[in-house]
Every structure is written in C-alpha cells, then in structure tokens.
Amino acid sequence: MLAVYACDPAESRGRLVAEEESTFRSCFQRDRDRIIHASAFRRLKHKTQVFVEHEGDYYRTRLTHSIEVAQVARTISGVLGLNAELTEALALAHDLGHTPFGHTGEDALADLMAPYGGFDHNAQAIRIVTSLERHYAEFDGLNLTWETLEGLAKHNGPVTGNLPYALAAYNARHDLELHTHASAEAQVAAIADDVAYNHHDLHDGLRAELFSTDELADLPILQDCFAEVDQRYPGLNYYKRRHEALRRFFGVLVEDVIAVARGNLAEIAPQSVADIRRAGRGVIRFSDALWADLNLIRAFLFKRMYRAPGVIEMRAEVTQVVNELFPYFMAHPEALPKQWRKDVEEAEGETALARIVADYIAGMTDRFALQRHADLVTGTPTTVTKHG
C-alpha cells in the first residue's frame, strides 16, 4: 500500500510524447526497465567510481555503485510506503551523465566546456534520457515520465539560478518545476547515494591498502561498530571482523535516515506528493549528529583516499587524456563516429560543435577514452598509473 504522499503511477503527469500504457507494467516500472536497457547504463560498467576501472576487479564501478544505491533506495522506500519502482528508476539513472574517469573527468570536461555553457553530470543525465539515447521510432531519448525526469533534475534539491544548458533546454520544452523540492522517492534515491558511497568507499580504500583497519576503527560511528563486533565475536578473523563492522556501519546509516524521515513526515503530515514538494525543505535526510560524524569520515577519506598520492597521479594522467581528446575532436569532427556526423553537419557555430564533442566524450568508458587517445593523439597505448 502506498502512503498518501507517495507518487502514484495512476496519477502520473505522463510523458512528453504520449504513449499507450502497458497492460502489465506501471509507468514507473517501464521507466526503470528503459533505463536498465539504455546504452548509457551498460557503459557504467567501465566507468570510474574512485579507481580507474582496470585497476582491479573488486573495486566499485559506476554500475556496481548504482546497483548498490538502488538496493538501499528500495529498502528505505518500502519502509516509508513510497513507490519503490520510481525510487529504483531514479537510483539506477542518477549517474548516467558521468564522464569517464569519474569526477576527475567531469572536472576536466567542465573546464573545457566553460566557454560553451559548462558541463554538469546531473544535467547530462537529463540530456541522455531525453535526447542522446536514440533507439525508439517515435522519439529520441527514453520518453520517461515527468516524475522520473523531475527526480533526476532535482534529487539534490531545487535547481535555481543559471541552469546548465542541458537542463535549461529540456525544461523549456517540459516544465519540471525546478524551483520546488522533488518527490520523497527522489529524495530517497539521493540519500541512498550518500549511504552507498560512504559505505563502499571504506571497503575499497581498505582493499587498496590506503588505510588500515585500526585507523578505520578510530573513526566516529565505526568505533561503536567495531566494539560491537569484538564483543560478540572475540578473536574473529581479520577480514571477517572488518566486514562485520562495515555491515553495522551501513545499517546505522539506513536506520538513521528512516528514523529522521518518519519524524519529518509526522511533523509535516503531508497528504499528497504536492505537500512534499511544497514543504520548503527536504524530508529525507540524516540526523544532525550523524551528519557531523559523516563529515569527519569524509574528511578522512578525502585525505587518505581521494587525494592519496597514487590517486593524484592518476587524476593528472586522465585529465590530460580528456584535455587532449576535446581539442582533437573540435579540430577533426570527421573523426567522430558516423552516427554523430549528421549532428555535426547540422551544428551551427562552435558552441553547438563543442556540445556534440562533450556528449561524445562524456559517454565514453574509461577504457574507450584511453583507446581513442592512443589511436588519435599519442599513437601509443596510454597506461594509467595504478593507485599504489
């Protein structure tokens, strides 16, 4: 049973291009399925989360991260009486706009695109699902429901001020009411992202030996998790001990979100999804105390993992790859694949060409970007330094 403040598929605002409804799937289920079958979703398999994907088979990629986010999001959504299919669709799609090499690639592309309207991975996700996926006879993009597009656009809160061009262009055709908060389902997908990466980045950092289990056990929240494991399983194997502690850390985050959400929902007493959008604040969030502890954990990860010497060296090398691919394609648009050349022929001016080039580079996987760089720029394979 859906809560009164959940998104009901029967009351969806529909799709930009009207379609006949499925007889056995809700509109949000169809959105989820289209996302899973999208080319951009498959490419997440070989896109960086923290470590460049070829550095090891055990590290998270954008695809495995998205699956973990969806698992967390469905759990929270179910407890709160929200629409699990919409929540899952948003969780699976939230990183579709990421470039190769994670945030490093995004930073490089954003600098290159600064004269042409900038680049933002959230806005790029909208561009992908509304334009760049071109498989259907009647429309470009995936023709997702208004609720899914709204959630992708503003899952981190209202979007105001100067809009990224990719978002502004679509919003002019299909008003996503960017000034309001998104549905509770979108807010759950956003916080599930935080839960997932705070948990799995600790896993990956340990595997990469960028910090020790003892250092982890000194951090807030984790101190109690390790103490509970040691009390219950004295003398436990080293690897099982840290896994059990991280399991408990994961649970603490999810339980905190659920408790805070229940409190906020009881206070606001929303009677519809519109009440959630007009609440003036997010209703799905961490408690202040846990958020403060998470900031200390983030500071630890930033210093010891995200800015570890080997990771910094990798960042410099892959930044160079993006920095050299972009001007190459600007000067040689004929090197783009043939399915892109019609867009190039119709492009009017340098800005239009730059946006096509950015779309192409943003869609690349790590390995394909390295391969294209080797083929077109250096003439030799590019070997990215490993983290260690």
Rank of each mutant, 00 (worst) to 15 (best):
E68V: 00
V79W: 04
E85G: 07
E21N: 06
V79N: 04
Y116R: 13
Q124E: 15
Y58T: 05
H121M: 15
L92R: 08
L96T: 01
L86C: 08
Q124R: 11
E106F: 00
T104H: 08
A108S: 10
A73W: 05
G97I: 04
A110E: 10
Q124C: 14
T130M: 08
A84E: 08
D111T: 09
I36M: 12
R42A: 15
I126G: 05
E53W: 03
T99R: 09
V50G: 02
R62E: 15
L63F: 10
G118P: 11
R25E: 05
D57Y: 09
G117W: 06
E55C: 13
T75K: 11
Q71S: 12
D57E: 10
S77K: 00
A38L: 01
E53C: 11
G105T: 04
H54L: 08
R74F: 06
G97H: 02
H94V: 07
L109A: 07
T75P: 00
D33K: 14
H54C: 08
I126M: 11
E53A: 07
L44T: 05
E21R: 07
H65N: 10
E53P: 03
I35K: 02
H37R: 11
G81D: 06
H37P: 00
F24Q: 13
T61I: 12
N83I: 01
E106I: 01
G97S: 09
V79S: 06
A123S: 14
S26F: 03
D95M: 06
S77F: 03
F28H: 09
I67S: 06
E53M: 04
L63P: 00
L109V: 00
T23H: 13
E20A: 12
I36C: 09
A93C: 08
R127T: 01
M113T: 00
L80R: 07
G78W: 06
V50H: 10
E21P: 02
H94G: 05
V79G: 01
E106Y: 01
R60H: 14
A91Q: 02
R127W: 14
E55S: 12
I36V: 12
E53K: 03
G81Q: 05
T87P: 03
V52T: 11
N83G: 06
E21T: 08
E106L: 04
Q49R: 05
M113F: 04
G105P: 06
H37T: 07
S39A: 15
E21A: 11
A108D: 03
C27F: 03
L44A: 07
V72K: 07
C27S: 08
Q71P: 00
D107N: 10
C27Q: 08
Y116I: 10
A114I: 02
F51A: 11
A108M: 04
Y58L: 14
Y59H: 07
V129K: 03
L86I: 08
T104A: 14
F51E: 00
V52E: 13
K45V: 07
I67Q: 11
V50Y: 08
A93G: 09
K47L: 15
L92A: 09
S66V: 02
G102V: 02
T75H: 13
L80T: 02
R43H: 15
H46C: 13
A73R: 01
A73T: 02
R62C: 15
E53Y: 06
